[in-house]
C-alpha cells in the first residue's frame, strides 16, 4: 500500500495564496498579494484566523525558533577544515541571555588559537552560529568556497578558518588581534524571522580590533536563497576584501 501523508503546508507559497471567502474582486486580491510578502488577503473565521493561516504561522514560528536553539552541523565545519573554538558561554540559554559572554574567549582558547592557527594572515575567515544555526548550515559552504577560491587566486595569504560556537559578532575582534590578521570576515547567523530562518550576515573589518567602534565594520546582510544568494554574496565579499587590502580600511572609512 502506498504511504499516505497530510499535505506539506510548508511547501505552499502563502505569499500568493488568497484565502478571503467571496472577495469583491479576486483579481484585486491577487494583485495585492503580488505587491507584498505580508500575510494579507488571508480571510477570517469569525474574527479569528482561518485554520490554514494559523497553522502556517505556527510552522514558520517553529522553524524560526528551532534555528535559534539548534547547533551548527559540526560535520560541515569539520569537512571545510575549520578550527573549532567556543566563547565563555556554556550553553544556549546562557548564550541567549548573556551577550557579553558570547563576545569573549578564555585565555586558554586564545593561546590555543595562537598556537594552532596560521599567524599574520592577510585574510581571516570566521564562522559563528549567532542566532541561527540553520543559516550557517545553509550558506556557509558555498559562500566560503567562493571567497577562498577568489582570495587564493589573488595570491593573498589565507588564515586557518575558525568556527566559533556560541559566538557573537565582536568575537572577530579578539581573533583578529590574536592572529594579527589584516582583513577579518565573520559569517554569522542572523536573528530569524518568519520569512526566513536561514539568513546569514557577513561582517568585515580591516585590522579588526576590540578597541575600535562598531563602525569599523562593513556588513552584507540577508544572505539566503531569496535574499542575496550565496554566489552573489561570496563575490561581493571577495570584492570587498580586495578593496580593504588595497585601501587598508573598512566600515565608514571605506568609500564604496
Amino acid at each position: 500500500m502506498d504511504e499516505q501523508w497530510v499535505r506539506d503546508i510548508s511547501a505552499v507559497d502563502y505569499t500568493s495564496r488568497v484565502t478571503v471567502r467571496n472577495p469583491k474582486s479576486i483579481e484585486a486580491c491577487v494583485k495585492l498579494k503580488e505587491s507584498t510578502n505580508a500575510r494579507v488577503c488571508v480571510g477570517r473565521a469569525g474574527t479569528r484566523y482561518r485554520t490554514e493561516t494559523l497553522l502556517r504561522f505556527l510552522a514558520d514560528h517553529a522553524a524560526a525558533n528551532d534555528s535559534v536553539w539548534s547547533d551548527v552541523d559540526e560535520s560541515l565545519v569539520d569537512r571545510l577544515g575549520f578550527f573549532k573554538i567556543k566563547t565563555l558561554v556554556r550553553d544556549k540559554q546562557e548564550y541567549i541571555t548573556r551577550p557579553d559572554l558570547g563576545r569573549k574567549f578564555s585565555k586558554d582558547t586564545i593561546e590555543e588559537v595562537k598556537a594552532r592557527c596560521i599567524v599574520n594572515p592577510d585574510i581571516q575567515i570566521i564562522a559563528a552560529d549567532g542566532l541561527s544555526a540553520f543559516a550557517i548550515d545553509a550558506n556557509l559552504e558555498d559562500t566560503y568556497s567562493i571567497i577562498s577560491d577568489r582570495v587564493r587566486a589573488k595570491g593573498y595569504k589565507m588564515g586557518t578558518p575558525i568556527f566559533v560556537k556560541y559566538g557573537r559578532v565582536a568575537t572577530m575582534d579578539a581573533i583578529s588581534e590574536a592572529l594579527n590578521a589584516k582583513v577579518t570576515v565573520l559569517l554569522v547567523g542572523e536573528r530569524p524571522g518568519l520569512v526566513t530562518n536561514e539568513s546569514m550576515s557577513a561582517y568585515m573589518a580591516y585590522d579588526s580590533s576590540t578597541v575600535k567602534p562598531e563602525s569599523q565594520r562593513t556588513v552584507i546582510s540577508n544572505i539566503y536563497n531569496d535574499g542575496t544568494p550565496t554566489v552573489e554574496a561570496g563575490a561581493q565579499i571577495a570584492y570587498l576584501i580586495e578593496l580593504m587590502m588595497k585601501e587598508k580600511k573598512s566600515g565608514i572609512d571605506l568609500k564604496l
Partner: peptide, 25 residues
C-alpha cells in the same frame, strides 16, 4: 495591528488585525 501579527520588516511578531477585532468583540 499587523497582517497576522508578522512584522516582515522588523522580523518579529506583534499583534494582528484579527486580534484587534476579536478584543473589541
Amino acid at each position: 495591528g499587523l497582517p497576522v501579527a508578522d512584522d516582515v520588516m522588523l522580523m518579529n511578531q506583534t499583534t494582528s488585525f484579527h486580534d484587534v477585532a476579536t478584543i473589541r468583540e
